[in-house]
Design a protein around this nucleic acid. Structure first.
Lengths: 232, 232
DNA sequence: CGTGCTTTTGAATAGTATCAAGGCCGGTGG
DNA sequence: CCACCGGCCTTGATACTATTCAAAAGCACG
């Protein structure tokens, strides 16, 4: 049994509950270990509760019936995925791990009670959703107005932001071309082309199949006219 | 002074506060009347509080520095716009009325206190943001995967959903081609072309400059393979 | 009844997606 | 250890879609 007290994930939203509730949630939740590439929940399945990422990286995906898949959000430790539903409701999105992950699941009933009795917790969850909504809306704008090259740069920066722990000017990316393409709504060939151009411009290197961004600041500056602040 | 008690907007989130807080907010808020086409707040301005739409329709917009504007969300009575910020923070988006509107403004301090003391209110605001996030993510998918014709249909349905009060199979739309184009990330010519096609197919009529959707159900069915549920 | 804006439509252009082929590993099995 | 196989990546050619440019028609307003 993994207790929340002593959990090293300082950004976990559950930490905003008061001590007895943190213990209550500790006892109720479970925290499976997901290997890379595993589904956490599927599009169309029933919502039983919410997931709090303790460790690892996750993509939120949505498909059409022809099987084309779009990645609509990336999430990392401290993020909440799934959502809180009253009664029966189905996920309109799915979630897949991008790296080995540990993810805490809390069921709807416990969550509802926790919300009612822990205002600070509820407020922080609300603010989390509010922030994510803003980010999603800025992404909508970018995907609507940008050309392919700009979109690829946006995607790489978004991935870098999600995957790098500390502030740095150099980040490694381990997603393949297809996965990057699905984040920005294009195909793997286009991603490959843009990466080739950026390689010529010395903005990144590729070693085997990992991409190494060499100059995050410069990359950011190339698309900075689309939004102020570092929100993807 | 417009008091919340007796306000006919049943879907207002503030109604979830307890009676004394509803009165407190009533006394503090103010409710300007905005004519059509008016800015409620600008991209880049300071966040002083949140706005609750009492009456009317609003578009949330975001621009790049070249002046191209994208509409990222539509909002109607009962929706909350702007967001709750701690300390100094700037809007990354702007809001413009699409029809004559009445919009209640509540400042940050009052809101913070209300959140702390009205769990039900906070929960409903959280759930509102959660729902909007899901809708935004489904929109991301649609805009990424759809072709132009499908996007126009999506846009028309989204507008119809926002503007029509009751469930009906026929809705009038009073936005111009340019405004529709900005919702789906294209230009007015494309919108015009698709509308011509849909007119030939008897799915809509145009009278002067208003668009009348004649068969919402049929329009929905043409893009139904992109998502289940009626979420835009 | 002009004047100016929006809409519509066509044609030219640019950009993106698709198709196809070859190269580059990494893994497997001889 | 090496050869082969399969998957991913890269690049080019082609087809297609969407954007841009332009012109004419429609409508709204003074």
């Amino acid at each position: 049994m993994l207790m929340c007290v002593g959990c090293n994930n300082t950004s976990c939203l559950i930490k905003n509950c008061n001590p007895d509730w943190i213990e209550k949630i500790s006892l109720q939740k479970n925290t499976p270990v997901y290997p890379k590439g595993q589904y956490i929940f599927f599009e169309g399945s029933l919502v039983m509760g919410a997931y709090f990422i303790k460790k690892g990286h996750v993509k939120i995906v949505s498909s059409n019936l022809q099987g084309k898949e779009q990645t609509v959000r990336l999430a990392k430790a401290g993020h909440m995925i799934g959502h809180t539903a009253f009664g029966l409701e189905k996920y309109s999105i799915g979630a897949v791990t991008l790296s080995d992950s540990e993810i805490c699941f809390v069921d709807n009933n416990t969550l509802q009670q926790a919300f009612l009795e822990n205002p600070k917790f509820t407020i922080e969850v609300m603010r989390f959703y509010s922030r994510e909504l803003r980010k999603s809306e800025i992404r909508t704008k970018c995907l609507a107005l940008m050309n392919n090259e700009e979109k690829v740069i946006l995607g790489l920066l978004y991935i870098a932001d999600t995957f790098s722990e500390e502030e740095t000017n150099e980040v490694e990316i381990h997603l393949n071309r297809q996965e990057i393409a699905q984040i920005i709504g294009t195909n793997s060939e286009q991603v490959s082309r843009v990466i080739s151009i950026l390689k010529k411009d010395q903005l990144l290197e590729t070693k085997e199949r990992t991409i190494i961004l060499k100059d995050i600041k410069h990359l950011k500056s190339t698309i900075s006219h689309y939004s102020f602040a570092n929100e993807y």
